Amino acid sequence: MPTAGPRSGDAIFASVERVNAELFTLTYGATVRQLLTDLEEVEEVNKQLDQMGYNIGIRLIDEFLAKSNISRCVDFKETADVIAKIGLKMFLGVNATVTNWDAEGTCCSIVLEDNPLVDFVELPDTCQGLHYCNILSGVIRGALEMVSMKTEVTWLRDMLRGDDSFELQVKLLKQIPEEYPYKDDE
């Protein structure tokens, strides 16, 4: 994953085209509501949101790399910092911080200062197991996989569940060796 270069998350966010935030929030809410209706099981909705995010993340990384103009990260710590300070700012306009590193430097928390996905949202009692913003964990997981990092991304805290902040745990499971196909001339 690239490191922060000449363009900050704020500069990139200011220069990219955006859709109306309220329209985006309401459309996402309608998507979650439809999944709840179609799938009926909250855990299945969580899985579907994660998979949708994963599919977005594996495509979004190309745009991120093209627009951010940053060089390759040296380690997972630097990668997490780029996600928090540039990636989340670039695509969601959200400031985030990286905290709670483990001793090995393979697990951390990303705490979001704001979360536009939850504007206008209140979960009913029947949806208390729902990770409403699970699409974000999938996006991060998918994007990191495309830059050779197999990760597990889970929600630790969620303001929709009564917590004081939104906190994702990102755990590096393994570095995926980059493979370059070649044609053997025989």
Rank of each mutant, 00 (worst) to 15 (best):
P6F: 07
S8C: 05
S8L: 03
D10R: 02
N20R: 03
A21V: 15
L23D: 13
F24M: 11
T25L: 00
T25W: 04
V32A: 04
V32F: 04
R33N: 09
L35T: 06
D38C: 05
L39I: 05
V45Y: 06
G53D: 08
N55I: 04
I61S: 01
D62G: 06
E63Q: 10
L65F: 00
S71F: 14
S71R: 14
K77I: 01
E78R: 00
T79N: 04
V82R: 07
A84W: 02
I86Y: 06
L88R: 01
M90C: 09
L92A: 06
L92N: 03
V94Y: 02
N95D: 14
N95C: 05
A96W: 06
A96F: 09
V98A: 00
T99Q: 13
A103F: 06
T106I: 07
L112Q: 10
L112V: 00
N115L: 14
N115G: 01
P116Y: 08
L117H: 08
F120S: 11
V121L: 13
P124R: 05
T126S: 15
T126H: 11
L130C: 12
Y132H: 06
I135G: 07
R141T: 03
A143V: 06
E145F: 13
M149A: 04
K150A: 11
T154N: 08
R157C: 06
D158I: 03
L160M: 12
R161T: 09
S165Y: 11
E167A: 13
E167Q: 11
L168W: 11
Q175H: 11
Q175A: 11
I176F: 06
E178I: 14
E179V: 13
D185T: 15
E186Q: 12
